[in-house]
């Protein structure tokens, strides 16, 4: 301590130096202006959807747009009351399918990712490679083969069948992400756990999973979104009955061949966005860095 104090005093204050963190005023203004503009560009479309959602369909698209024009919550009321198709049922279907996808995909990709990160087994390289390769097929190409497989499994038209289909896209990507995350957790921790009396699965469940929370959160969010907003698979694999549709499929009722119900569509979009935002809010609490710091000397 004394040494530090002395050395501090010994440094002569020759000229007032600007701290590195300080910016000149002009630079500061320019920077903030740029940030504000970028934010506006990002936020405006969402904002406009919100504004539109309160307007009647006839006022939604105007030559001179206004913020309020006969605005009311009518659109919301009509959608939620089921006037425009069984919105609540679609909502329930979507939530169920998205949550099931999230749970199954996270569990499968966490176990796979852990195995790929910690164990050496034959075919590991080709497994990871195939995970990468399947990402490259366009959805459209997959619909027919997947349809046949679901048919053979007797799952065609069921929610669970669709969940499995979503897992085929979510699991490979999530596995990659989680493997990368597990790689950052020191293997010494696994070994300490084994010596302390954990089984290999115990190590995974009680040490690695808690430490991988940020990675799991991102993965869960990704898996949720994969299922939440998807249209092509959902319209192909779910039965055509109105009450078994998901939201993304159901929203199409507002877009008809010669007429688009902008107001209703906007209101429905806002309602669709709410759960996604809620999931993100839940998940972002885990997005803290440095969970595994302190394990090793540092």
């Amino acid at each position: 301590m004394t040494v530090e104090a002395a050395s501090l005093k010994a440094v002569p204050a020759t000229r007032p130096q600007r701290k590195r963190s300080e910016r000149s005023k002009a630079a500061s203004i320019a920077l903030h202006a740029a940030l504000v503009i970028a934010s506006l560009i990002a936020v405006f479309p969402v904002f406009w959807v919100l504004v539109t959602s309160f307007k009647p369909d006839a006022r939604a698209v105007e030559t001179t747009p206004t913020l309020f024009n006969e605005s009311s919550v009518d659109n919301y009321v009509r959608i939620l009351s089921g006037d425009k198709g069984d919105f609540l049922a679609w909502f329930g279907n979507s939530v169920l399918i998205a949550l099931m996808t999230t749970v199954i995909a996270v569990f499968l990709s966490a176990t796979t990712g852990y195995a790929a990160s910690r164990f050496r087994f034959p075919g590991k390289r080709s497994l990871m490679l195939s995970f990468l390769v399947v990402q490259m097929f366009p959805f459209a190409v997959l619909i027919v083969p997947l349809y046949n497989i679901l048919l053979a499994l007797g799952l065609q038209g069921t929610s669970f069948g669709l969940v499995l289909v979503y897992c085929t896209t979510a699991v490979p990507f999530c596995t990659y992400m989680l493997k990368g995350y597990f790689d950052t957790i020191p293997t010494d921790i696994d070994e300490a756990g084994r010596v302390d009396g954990l089984s290999p699965f115990g190590v995974f469940w009680r040490l690695v999973m808690p430490l991988a929370r940020p990675g799991l959160a991102v993965t869960a969010f990704y898996a949720f979104l994969t299922a939440w907003g998807e249209v092509a698979f959902a319209s192909a694999f779910l039965s055509a009955a109105d009450e078994s549709k998901t939201l993304a499929v159901g929203l199409q009722v507002f877009v008809q061949q010669n007429r688009t119900e902008w107001g209703h569509l906007a209101a429905a979009s806002i309602l669709v966005a709410v759960p996604a935002i809620a999931v993100f809010y839940l998940v972002q609490r885990f997005l803290v860095t440095g969970l595994s710091s302190g394990a090793v000397k540092g």
């Binding site: 020191p186 010494d188 921790i189 070994e191 300490a192 756990g193 010596v195 302390d196 040490l207 808690p210 430490l211 969970l291 595994s292 710091s293 302190g294 394990a295 090793v296 000397k297």
Partner: peptide
């Protein structure tokens, strides 16, 4: 057995 690791390998959470 109990082991003390070079990196200590404490459970961070």
């Amino acid at each position: 057995i109990a082991m003390v690791f070079q990196s200590y390998a404490l459970y961070p959470h």
